[in-house]
């Protein structure tokens, strides 16, 4: 960890390039092995992706997914942080509720989609809810652990300085727990994204997830490949960035 992160970002970039090259080679090889029935080569996929990006019918779907994901992420972060801080500073509340959160984290939430559909109907609300329930629990759990792990001497220092709850959170708990909280946000980001997409696949008639589900039904390999490529690209670069920021935070801590 130290050798790569402090050894300069050069090594990191080199490693990332190697990884991308490796994935492309594997993809190409797999595409040749499997054949046209189920896969496209990287080049074909990128060409089709470019076409997709220039077709006007694609953008409303992207915008829909973007909006749903943004909303779900916002909700997950706000609610997750609130729960995490509340339980983090209140020992008894966390004793009562943490096992519940852990249990909720470990249930296969995908089975809940019909219930959400019945509750929210076939629209943006259902998939926002689906995204939020995926993302909120890891954010809450990571924040809770982060706040509880803040070195007691920091809190004592805050006390003797006479800080109130608000100043204690903003001045001491948040900065001290930031690296770990950020890890939670990173995990929450990924899970909210997958939750939103799954929501769209099963519970929507618009958005990238819906397009993907439709393409799976119609066995439209071009669209499946292009959408998967786009999503991996987005998720990969976003989580790469978050991972980079996260490591910087840990270095400072």
């Amino acid at each position: 960890m130290n050798a790569t992160s402090s050894g300069g970002s050069n090594a990191g970039w080199f490693s990332a390039l190697k990884l991308i090259a490796l994935l492309l080679v594997l993809w190409q090889a797999l595409a040749w092995m499997v054949g046209d029935v189920a896969m496209r080569t990287p080049l074909q996929t990128m060409t089709f992706t470019a076409n997709l990006l220039t077709s006007p019918s694609f953008w409303p779907h992207l915008a829909e997914t973007g909006r749903a994901f943004g909303l779900a992420l916002l909700l997950a972060v706000v609610i997750g942080l609130a729960i995490g801080f509340l339980l983090g500073i209140n020992r008894f509340a966390s004793d009562v509720l943490e096992p519940v959160l852990v249990a909720l984290y470990s249930i296969p939430k995908i089975t809940l989609y019909p219930i959400l559909l019945l509750m929210f109907g076939l629209g943006v609300a259902a998939k926002v809810a689906f995204g939020t329930i995926h993302g909120v629990i890891p954010i809450a759990l990571f924040t809770l652990a982060a706040v509880r792990n803040v070195r007691p001497v920091f809190v004592k220092t805050g006390r003797v300085m006479g800080l109130g709850t608000g100043r204690m959170i903003s001045g001491i708990l948040l900065p001290a727990a930031m690296p770990e909280i950020f890890t939670g946000l990173r995990v929450g980001f990924s899970l909210t994204l997958i939750g939103t997409l799954l929501g769209e696949m099963f519970a929507s008639q618009r958005g990238l997830g819906f397009m993907l589900m439709n393409a799976i039904g119609l066995h439209n390999v071009d669209v499946i490949m292009a959408l998967t490529f786009l999503l991996v690209l987005f998720a990969g670069s976003a989580s790469g960035l978050l991972l980079f920021l996260n490591r910087r935070l840990y270095q400072r801590a």
Partner: peptide
């Protein structure tokens, strides 16, 4: 490492037809 960090954001079900 970056693959693991991204992994759960990828809709794995997209590979189901394949």
């Amino acid at each position: 490492d970056p693959v693991f960090a991204t992994y759960y954001a990828i809709p794995m079900f997209a590979f189901y037809p394949l």
